[in-house]
Write a protein that binds this DNA or RNA. Structure first.
Length: 474
RNA sequence: GCCCCCAUCGUCUAGAGGCCUAGGACACCUCCCUUUCACGGAGGCGGCAGGGGUUCGAAUCCCCUUGGGGGUACCA
């Protein structure tokens, strides 16, 4: 039987880190076993679902390189299947209509809480007499559909991450609602657990890989598989991604959507690499910097951790800077260009020149966005910061700059610039460092940055060096 | 509250009873490279939550405690 897995996000927000990591594990598992990776959009919550989020999710997956093998399935379009399944369960007695009112349910919950017990439905309408049902109908009461859960039942499964798992029927909160409230002669909208199982069966899902926050759902879903007469898939419950405080990472934690990371200038390679590292430890031969394609052949749940992992910006930043440093000038320039343009910088220079600039800046970038501020003084007039102004106040510095402008060699290059600096320092009677700082201040407006000689040469290439040096002369 | 899960440096982790004087990576610190910053290179700091067992021997197995997390919907 060939492997079929799926990622099943609900379009109630952008593609989130947690969802993306689950998608990565699913994708890796599918590729490892030559199976298929599918996407199902769980848009049955009409209140909160938005088409724009579906786009965001699909775009995010694509950006990460998680290509899917069949057209995405939209859960909302599968309601007939859901209805039929519910009707079948109703027909064979595994499910029944419950007419309990909200007030009744609340009373139950409060009573249980007062008794220090877990809230649960007491199955009061499980075996209603025909007379009472008739009475409820006459009353015009609406009903939900509940699925019978035998309290004495032990639910067992072999989890690919956690090993043997066991859940007691009694801890599931009573007979579970599988269809929303509706007039008693109809079947309401299907609820999560029912829809998931029906769809996973229809899609032929063989392995369900999801976060550990779904463990209780798995117990319920296993019961549904049984009642629907379908063999259950294998389950893998992966550790959660935790925030700085050690809680489940949520949208409330600031930057958590894949689109955010992309906007900040993280590369897809670094992000997917990092997600692999959070919870999965690659075999030593792989090292810890690798692409999804490298990880796929060796991926397995035997090396997936059980404990949740905290999201660590430092590690992601390191991975991203490594990815950026490894780029050649041409690649980096292409990655930077849209950001330069968006920042309104002049990008009319020759392509080769821009590539040289990118190569010069490369080693100091952590995220692509860093390349905007750092390129700014090269792509437009420099704005002198305080330290630069102070440097240019120094008498000897001014003298050296005068010397430099007067002794410009006919053919300028980095080597010539170096000699010029030495000569200027000697003429002005100061250490070369003082002159270098002054030149840097004049050319770029700040005292720190990439190699001065290369920077100077680059500015010379677009005729920007002399004017800038002159501009700071008193 | 109740149910379930988890527990190695600050963080991510290696470790399947002797290979452990607990290894790696990030972060941090020092030095080198560099008359700047960064990159790069070399070192360093730092951990098996606690207590009981089992065993000749335990980070590894069992129990308890503690701590942390998840779940407890007519959301997904």
């Amino acid at each position: 039987m060939s492997v079929r897995v799926r990622i099943a996000p609900s379009p109630t927000g952008n593609l989130h880190m947690g969802t993306a990591r689950t998608a990565v594990f699913n994708w890796l598992f599918a590729r490892r076993h030559g199976g298929r990776f599918l996407v199902r959009i769980e848009d049955t919550d009409r209140e909160r679902s938005q088409p724009a989020f579906t786009d965001s999710i699909l775009t995010g997956l694509r950006w990460l390189g998680l290509d899917w093998d069949e057209e995405p399935v939209f859960q909302s379009r599968r309601s007939r299947d859901h209805q039929e399944a519910i009707a079948a369960l109703l027909a064979n007695g595994r499910a029944y209509r419950c007419y309990a009112t909200e007030a009744e349910l609340n009373a139950m919950r409060e009573a249980r809480q007062a008794a220090h017990q877990a809230p649960r439905y007491d199955n009061r309408h499980r075996n209603l007499s025909p007379e009472r049902i008739a009475a409820f109908h006459k009353e015009g009461r609406h009903a939900v559909v509940r699925f019978r859960i035998d309290d004495t039942q032990d639910i067992l499964w072999q989890d690919m991450v956690r090993g043997p798992m066991r859940w007691q029927g009694a801890d599931l909160g009573g007979d579970m609602v599988i269809a929303r409230r509706a007039p008693a002669d109809r079947i309401g909208d299907p609820l999560y657990n029912l829809a998931v199982v029906v769809d996973d069966i229809a899609m032929g899902i063989t392995h369900v890989i999801r976060g550990e926050d779904h463990i209780a759902n798995t117990a319920k879903q296993l019961l549904l598989y049984n009642a629907l007469g379908a063999p259950p898939p294998c389950f893998a419950h992966t550790p959660l991604i935790l925030n700085k405080e050690g809680r489940k990472l949520s949208k409330r934690d600031g930057v958590t959507s894949i689109a955010d990371f992309q906007a900040l200038g993280y590369t897809a390679a670094a992000v997917s690499n990092y997600m692999c590292l959070l919870g999965w430890s690659p075999p030593v031969e792989l090292g810890e910097r690798f692409g999804l394609a490298d990880a796929a052949p060796v991926f397995g749940f035997d090396r997936v951790n059980k404990a949740g992992g905290r999201f660590d910006w430092d590690k992601l930043n390191w991975l991203n800077s490594q990815a950026l440093h490894a780029m050649d000038g041409a690649t980096l320039r292409n990655a930077l260009l849209p950001r330069w343009q968006q920042a309104g910088l002049d990008t009319s220079q020759p392509l080769a020149w821009q590539e040289q600039l990118a190569a010069l800046l490369g080693p100091s970038l952590v995220v692509l966005q860093d390349g905007v501020e750092q390129a700014r003084p090269f792509l437009g007039p420099p704005e002198l910061d305080d330290a630069s102004r102070a440097q240019l106040q120094i008498e000897a510095c001014q003298a050296a700059l005068h010397y430099i402008l007067q002794h410009r060699p006919r053919t300028f290059n980095a080597a010539a610039a170096k000699e010029l600096l030495t000569a200027a320092a000697r003429a002005a009677g100061v250490r070369k460092g003082v002159v270098m700082k002054g030149v840097r201040a004049a050319l770029l407006g700040c005292l720190h940055g990439p190699d001065l000689l290369l920077s100077w040469d680059l500015l010379h290439g677009v005729g920007e060096d002399d004017p800038r040096l002159r501009a700071v002369l008193r």
